[in-house]
Amino acid sequence: MTDTTFSVRVPGGTLELTPGRPALMGIVNANPDSFSDAVRLTALDQQVEHARRLVADGASIIDVGGESGVTYTGVTAEEVEIERVVPLVERLAAEGIVVSVDTWKPAVAEAAIVAGAAILNDVSGLRDERLAEICARTGAALVVMHTRAVPKQEHFHDYAGDVAGDVVAFLQERVAVARAAGVHDEQLILDPGPDFAKTPAETVQSLHAIDTVNALGRPVLHAISRKYFVGAITRQPPAERGAGTLAAAGWSADHGAAILRVHDVRAAADFLAVKAVLDGTAPMPDFDADDDALKWIRATPQRTA
Rank of each mutant, 00 (worst) to 15 (best):
146 H>W: 10
296 W>Y: 10
89 V>F: 14
38 A>Q: 10
67 E>H: 06
129 E>D: 11
75 V>Y: 05
62 I>S: 10
116 G>A: 09
226 R>P: 00
292 D>R: 15
42 T>G: 15
166 D>E: 13
169 A>C: 05
214 N>M: 13
99 V>N: 05
129 E>K: 12
253 A>C: 02
153 Q>V: 11
48 V>H: 11
295 K>M: 06
50 H>R: 13
255 H>Y: 14
118 A>Q: 07
170 F>E: 11
58 G>D: 03
297 I>H: 13
115 A>C: 09
83 E>N: 11
190 L>I: 04
265 V>I: 01
22 P>T: 01
5 T>D: 09
142 L>W: 10
166 D>A: 13
201 A>N: 02
124 S>R: 08
242 G>C: 05
286 D>M: 05
205 Q>C: 06
292 D>H: 06
113 I>N: 15
138 T>V: 03
186 E>S: 12
176 A>K: 05
284 M>Q: 03
11 P>G: 02
297 I>Y: 14
285 P>C: 05
233 I>L: 08
155 H>I: 03
78 E>Y: 00
46 Q>N: 02
34 S>R: 00
225 S>A: 06
204 V>D: 12
49 E>H: 08
16 E>A: 15
85 V>P: 15
99 V>G: 04
145 M>P: 01
234 T>N: 02
268 A>R: 07
138 T>C: 14
282 A>H: 09
227 K>G: 06
103 T>Q: 07
101 V>Y: 02
278 L>F: 04
242 G>I: 10
236 Q>F: 00
47 Q>G: 02
261 R>Q: 00
178 A>Y: 04
1 M>C: 01
54 L>H: 01
131 L>C: 12
290 D>W: 09
281 T>H: 06
298 R>H: 02
94 A>Y: 03
292 D>K: 12
133 E>Q: 07
209 A>C: 05
59 A>H: 02
245 T>Q: 03
96 G>H: 11
144 V>K: 11
141 A>N: 08
182 G>A: 09
218 R>D: 01
94 A>S: 15
15 L>H: 07
54 L>D: 01
211 D>T: 15
182 G>R: 08
293 A>K: 14
256 G>Q: 15
132 A>T: 10
104 W>I: 01
